[in-house]
């Protein structure tokens, strides 16, 4: 789809705000996501302590275990920052290392969640068992889905980079997935605080 010559408009047009279009899109998307998770968290809080049968949160939560997996997810934000710093200074090899590290930490977090879900399920908690089961699985499940999509995008960039198709000038792509990744982390901090630490009955 090449066009003749090098027209004036071949370069990306300067935007009115100076902010790149894709970056603005990502911020708007994240703003929209706030309402998405806000609604899910509200439903959880509204129904806290309203389950008429068990199992109840206090019987199931393993706060030390979840603290460790939360720490793992938080550390993945650090490696995400390092990956962005690496591509911005043109160090593509380190970028790949840190991208892979981020994806692995994300996967580790997801494994922890899978372990937690199976343990809870074995103890009788399901979507159907009570209100706690419905709200807990749907809220943390949607968060896990967001982490999974993040991991897929991180690995996609990593593979593209191995093929030599990611250049220093593509740093915006890494910045965008970084924004998404940090947002998903922040949501987890809110969930960990409101859902796990303030356990309720």
């Amino acid at each position: 789809m090449e066009y003749a010559g090098t027209p004036a408009h071949a370069q990306p047009l300067e935007t009115s705000t100076g902010l790149d279009n894709r970056k603005l899109l990502m911020w708007l998307f994240l703003g929209s996501e706030c309402l998405f998770f806000g609604s899910l968290i509200s439903a959880y809080l509204l129904y806290r302590d309203r389950s008429v049968v068990g199992p109840y949160p206090r019987e199931l939560y393993d706060i030390p275990f979840t603290s460790v997996s939360s720490f793992v997810l938080l550390m993945s934000s650090v490696s995400m920052v390092l990956a962005l710093a690496a591509i911005q200074r043109g160090d593509l090899r380190r970028m790949r290392v840190w991208l892979l590290c981020t994806a692995l930490l994300g996967t580790l977090f997801l494994s922890g969640q899978a372990y937690e879900f199976t343990t809870f399920y074995d103890k009788g908690l399901s979507l159907h068992s009570n209100l706690f089961g419905s709200t807990f699985f749907v809220l943390t499940g949607f968060h896990g889905a967001h982490v999974s999509i993040g991991v897929i995008i991180l690995l996609s960039i990593w593979v593209r980079s191995l093929q030599g198709k990611v250049k220093q000038s593509d740093s915006l792509n890494v910045e965008l997935i970084g924004l998404y990744w940090h947002f998903v982390d922040v949501v987890w901090i809110v969930i960990f605080t409101l859902v796990y630490l303030l356990t309720g009955r």
Binding site: Y47, R50, L127, N130, L131, V138
Partner: peptide, 12 residues
């Protein structure tokens, strides 16, 4: 999936 979000019997 038989969740309980609007199931009054489950306290919803």
């Amino acid at each position: 999936f038989s969740a309980n979000f609007f199931n009054a019997n489950a306290g919803a």
